[in-house]
Computed example of a mutant assay.
Amino acid sequence: MITFPNAKINLGLNIVEKRPDGYHNLETIFYPINLQDALEVTRLEHSDNPYTLHVSGTVIDGEPEDNLVVKAYNLLKQDYPQMLAVDIHMYKHIPIGAGLGGGSADAAYMIKLLNEKFSLDISNEKMEEYAAQLGADCAFFIKNKPVFATGIGNIFEPIELSLKGYHIVLIKPDIFVSTKDAFSAIKPQHPAISLKEIAKQPIEAWKESMKNDFEDSVFLKYPEIAAIKDELYDLGAVYAAMSGSGSCVYGIFKEPIEHVEDKFCQCFCRQRELE
């Protein structure tokens, strides 16, 4: 049984306050996009191991037990011991550290895949509860529809928002942005206008009103990321921004851009139509 976990982008991101537990409350909009990994699960016959994991595509450092798809399997196994041993094959295409939620998507889709494969009859709401234990944004990928996210990125409110017909260009340079460093220069404040209201404006107005608070500190340290955003606007993007605190920058265009991968040949570069 195979499934295709997709990425997401953040439309704006406001850091609104620091919490007593050291985390930050924020507001952002998660929007699913058609950039996918592949995840396949088959039954593992005649094995003493509960699972095996095979990863191809982008290299993932760390031990198998630290991978979020394995953590998802172990989490469900605690409550559903009837689940059999599994052989997991994952092809990583969504870049790591990009702010696109690839790891969270893999974990959420693993939960949905196991639910279907072993007929566990887990509701969407219960699957969201499981996913939330694996990452703040992980539960988003259970229903996989645009949401206004608050809290630490774990409280979701459905919103009516469609970018269908637009095209997105994703550019990720070979730069790792530390989340800790990205937060270091942030001064939390409540925005004058909520992103939920800004998203109702025409997309052409977003450039002046929809901000990602991480850009100030990240662009100061990595001006090459800022240059990518500028170049996307030069190419005609109606809106461009970093996604989350990762190093990926996206541009939203009314029409596809010809030869865009040639323009950013030193970076991960993909163009997709939005749905």
Rank of each mutant, 00 (worst) to 15 (best):
Q78L: 14
S162P: 10
E204K: 13
E197I: 00
I168N: 04
D213H: 12
D106N: 14
K145Q: 14
I203K: 12
L235T: 04
V218D: 02
A241V: 03
Q36E: 12
P5V: 00
V177I: 08
G165R: 08
R272G: 03
I252P: 00
E231Q: 15
N115Q: 13
Y23R: 12
T3R: 13
L75D: 04
Y233T: 07
N212G: 00
K196T: 04
K18G: 12
D213Q: 03
S245Q: 08
D174L: 11
V249A: 02
G97S: 05
L163G: 06
I171H: 07
G251T: 01
A182Y: 08
K145E: 13
Y31Q: 04
D79F: 10
S194C: 13
H46V: 05
I142G: 01
V86G: 08
D174H: 15
P223L: 12
I94K: 03
K172A: 04
P173S: 09
R19W: 14
G22C: 11
P5W: 03
S47V: 13
L161R: 00
K187G: 02
I94D: 01
Y23L: 14
Y239G: 01
D174T: 15
S56V: 14
E273D: 11
V55E: 05
T28L: 10
L161E: 07
L76D: 06
D121F: 03
K117H: 13
K77R: 15
E224C: 14
M83F: 01
K180R: 15
K196A: 11
M242N: 04
Y109Q: 03
A182R: 01
M110H: 09
F219D: 06
L163M: 14
G57C: 05
Y80I: 04
